[in-house]
């Protein structure tokens, strides 16, 4: 295998990792702060992609950049509505009830998506300035894929700044540690939860919006992404954003190497990565064991 091919393969792995990280970051944040495994996170991702396709098809290709901001904001609003109307009622219930509640939301949103957008596959054209490809010797690599990696890096940086340097971020981290203590200190935890859930939905919506030009947008996206996102979160450690970044890279690399070396077994590699990590660190790479 030539050096160019290897470079392209590694860049491909980074693209996979980048798109997985954006969605996994929101999932892990919500789980960390609220202890809710949100199945409907996949629905938010799908709505992000569908909204981009609607905006672009109504206002033309130039509206892509607007949709990249508008779609996640609409999805974040939807997320906050879901939190206020559904999740608030199940915080004091056990994990299974919470899981069922988010699964119910997932099913409802999937049906509504078919009502709104129909079952036809949609495609969003790649924005003109990012549609070319970059040459690497004899090989080429899509410019848009680099944009996805860049967007993931920007999200990572943004989340780091948010969690490190802002009051909201400190409160989120405090909620991950001990939400009861936080409430006792006078923080409005209800409002905080709504904001965290909205942020999670925003990230899922952004993840869907960014990859919209790279995929067929249809009603199965929600289910197809949620399993991979959970694997990333479990590898990285539930609740850890840094873990989600490392987990996404591990999944991307394992998948790429699997495809290269033993293609017949490639789909098994990411599960293998998960098993190995859980065997060594049962709470994930960056996770801490949940205190009873």
């Amino acid at each position: 295998m030539s050096v160019e091919s290897l470079a392209v393969e590694l860049l491909s792995a980074m693209t996979t990792a980048g798109s997985l990280f954006i969605i996994a970051a929101g999932l892990t944040l919500v789980f960390g702060a609220m202890r809710i495994a949100n199945i409907a996170h996949g629905s938010f991702y799908m709505y992000g992609a569908f909204l981009v396709s609607t905006i672009v098809s109504s206002f033309g290709g130039g509206a892509f950049w607007v949709s990249l901001v508008a779609a996640p904001l609409i999805v974040a609003t939807l997320g906050m509505v879901v939190e206020v109307t559904v999740l608030r009622r199940v915080y004091d219930k056990d994990h299974l009830t919470q899981l069922l509640a988010t699964y119910a939301v997932f099913l409802i949103l999937a049906d509504l998506a078919i009502r709104f957008w129909g079952a036809q596959s949609r495609a969003v054209p790649t924005p003109a300035i990012l549609s070319g490809s970059m040459r690497l010797g004899a090989a080429s690599f899509p410019v848009y894929d680099l944009f996805v990696v860049g967007a993931a890096a920007a999200i990572g940086l943004g989340l780091w700044i948010l969690l490190r340097f802002t009051l909201l971020g400190w409160r989120i981290l405090a909620a991950v540690e001990d939400s009861e203590m936080l409430a006792a200190k006078g923080t409005n935890v209800r409002l905080l939860y709504t904001m965290v859930f909205g942020l999670g939905a925003l990230l899922a919506g952004f993840g869907g919006a960014v990859v919209a030009p790279l995929q067929s947008i249809d009603t199965g996206l929600d289910a197809n992404i949620i399993v991979a996102a959970f694997i990333v979160v479990v590898i990285g450690g539930l609740g850890s954003v840094a873990g989600a970044a490392v987990g996404a890279m591990i999944v991307g690399l394992f998948q790429a190497l699997g495809i290269l070396w033993t293609p017949s077994w490639a789909p098994a590699y990411i599960y293998l990565a998960m098993i190995v990590v859980l065997e060594i660190r049962p709470s994930g790479l960056f996770g801490t064991a949940e205190m009873a």
Partner: peptide
């Protein structure tokens, strides 16, 4: 042999081209 319903084919594509 990617999974049915895969959302990301980039690694498959580069492996095919290689």
């Amino acid at each position: 042999f990617p999974q049915l319903g895969a959302t990301d084919y980039t690694s498959y594509i580069s492996a095919l081209l290689a």
